[in-house]
Design a protein around this nucleic acid. Sequence first.
DNA 1: GACATCTTTGCCTAATCGGCAAAGTTTGCT
DNA 2: AGCAAACTTTGCCGATTAGGCAAAGATGTC
Lengths: 204, 204
Amino acid sequence: MADGLRERKKQETRIALSWAAVRLTVEHGLANVRIEDIAAEAGVSLRTFRNYFSSKAEAIAAREVDRSLRIAEELRARPADEPLWTAIRMSAESQFALGVEGHGGEQPPDERWLAGIRLMMTEPSLQGEMARAHAAASEEYAAAIADRTGTQGLYPRLVAEVVGAARTAASAEWLRADPPRPIAEILREVLDLISAGLPEPGHN
Amino acid sequence: MADGLRERKKQETRIALSWAAVRLTVEHGLANVRIEDIAAEAGVSLRTFRNYFSSKAEAIAAREVDRSLRIAEELRARPADEPLWTAIRMSAESQFALGVEGHGGEQPPDERWLAGIRLMMTEPSLQGEMARAHAAASEEYAAAIADRTGTQGLYPRLVAEVVGAARTAASAEWLRADPPRPIAEILREVLDLISAGLPEPGHN
DNA sequence: GACATCTTTGCCTAATCGGCAAAGTTTGCT
DNA sequence: AGCAAACTTTGCCGATTAGGCAAAGATGTC
């Protein structure tokens, strides 16, 4: 079986750990959470945590990695005759970004939670891990683009990296924006800018 | 004094540590090098290493961070009336990329050394750290773009991230290319693609 | 049901992390 | 020059992380 009980359980554990990591970090700050606490919160042993992730930060970023993989999957699912950038926009927007959704359901953006996420993301080691997460998923995304466009080598890899950059910039803007803007809207703007070649503003 | 003895020494130590890290890693593999060895090689105490870097990988990536900062500096130095993308191309190409240069001078790309670098870069934790390095320098680069274009907020950050993506993709291609291509050439191609909006190949 | 495979766990040792304060340098000021 | 403030290096130390190994427990296959 492609996904038996075993695989499902593994995913559940992975998600539970990642979530526990996020929750505890939002609440107590990254430095004040031991991986032991995270493991306990998720109901597994410390050693098991290490089988899944090699650091707190990686556990936190795991949800972002999963999202990236889902975006790649979504891209593969788009109609083959759709223009590449349309497909990219659609697939990216279909998963939004970063830690608001989920949380047990589709909560309205809880103010306290959001502030916690903001604070959490100021941790440099977290920002680094997010970059790393994108890099990790980038491989898969590049492969999806390669299949879709029938190209190989530089082009798919480049597009994948650029889309990662777009997501990073969009997330940063989302964290910064006051008043808040929906991430999907920001992402759309960013992708439009990119497919227009990032024209220098005010420089006709 | 803006750069007294103190500052100079600090930079020297930093460089010495980063180099020691690279050399030892190329020679023995990341896993077989203890930070203690690196510190010894650079002639400082273990504890001092930790004052500079928080991991082996960070030490190795430090040279890349420095390069990024030099690119940002170079961008600020370009004539203000030059089109943005020209300035970006020029400043980026002025520093090439990743670990070939330096090494005590401008050696011809030593075959053994290059193979070592290639191997080193396959370490996942290193790739992650490079991504992180870009993210760290991205701030500075975005500021340079903001000053140059007189824009704020999303645009400069986005361009900075995208240029980072360009460098990542170019580096990957450089590592992959057989026969080898000069990194400057790859980088030029990549930046041209980006400023043209990454047109889908064969999709007029 | 019996066997193979994978996951979880505890145990253990080496390595890393980061606070603290003592000792040594550099800098700014007079 | 002389001196104090500011900074860097270092050793010391306890807490935490890292990851190999093998026993025990689940799951998958036939």
